[in-house]
């Protein structure tokens, strides 16, 4: 504790020297954690029902391999996110499919999360960053393919705490909250993500990390050929 108190002013001083873009970049780097594998729980809440998935996750922080463990009828579905490219394997389909770029903005497993929320860096790629009263205010770059008019990224000690998406008419439409950051091998990983659809009350998605093992992930996990059999 004492050590932290010693370092905090240094960190803050460093932070104040960073440009808003650098702050965003660092915050995004800290969003995905170190290389790890684990089990995530995804809970999709609607007014009429709640649906829960258990997912096996392999990630090196930049690339992610995701496999559905539960519910049984969807078990075996697997997703591979390699930056620009998104692959999907479905056991009923019996083969791996590369999804078109449009797929990246689509919602994931019927939840409110998109593939982007989970693994992408669209916030950095598509937006220009400014800072107002400690909040990173992102506005779309020219010709960036995003339907949002503005995104606010709220940071706490350099970590993303809340992302608020606005439509182009100034109305907040989505809210992503991140909590329970855990320092792992010098990196950070939020243990909880909560996404609310602000246009539709009662629509909420929770992502929790149930198990985690930090350590290098075999390279084959990021090869589309291994989506079918697992890695």
């Amino acid at each position: 504790m004492k050590g932290m108190l010693f370092y905090l002013p240094v960190l803050l001083a460093l932070a104040s020297a960073q440009t808003p873009l650098e702050k965003l970049r660092i915050a995004l780097d800290r969003l995905r954690g170190p290389a790890h594998q684990g089990v995530y729980e995804l809970q999709v809440e609607r007014l009429e029902f709640v649906r829960t998935y258990r997912l096996r996750v392999y990630t090196d922080g930049k690339r992610t391999h995701l496999r559905v463990l539960e519910p049984g009828n969807e078990a075996g579905q697997a997703f591979l996110f390699l930056g620009e490219d998104l692959y999907l394997y479905d056991p009923r389909l019996g083969r791996t499919l590369r999804l078109p770029p449009a797929g990246r903005g689509e919602r994931f497993l019927g939840s409110d999360l998109t593939f982007q929320d989970l693994m992408g860096r669209d916030l950095e790629e598509f937006f220009q960053v400014a800072e107002t009263q400690g909040i990173l205010v992102l506005t779309p770059k020219p010709a960036a393919p995003t339907p949002y008019g503005k995104v606010e990224v709220h940071l706490k000690e350099g970590l993303i705490e809340r992302i608020l998406y606005y439509d182009q008419r100034g109305q907040a439409v989505r809210e992503l909250r991140l909590a329970g950051y855990q320092g792992l091998n010098g990196a950070y990983l939020p243990r909880e993500m909560e996404l609310r659809d602000l246009k539709r009350p009662g629509h909420r998605t929770l992502l929790r990390i149930a198990e985690i093992q930090v350590g290098a992930v075999p390279e084959r996990c990021f090869n589309p050929l291994y989506l079918e059999r697992g890695c």
Partner: peptide
């Protein structure tokens, strides 16, 4: 023909 339809509660993909 593979049909990709994410965003619902279903599988999102079907051949």
């Amino acid at each position: 023909v593979v049909v990709y339809a994410p965003g619902g509660f279903g599988l999102g993909v079907y051949a």
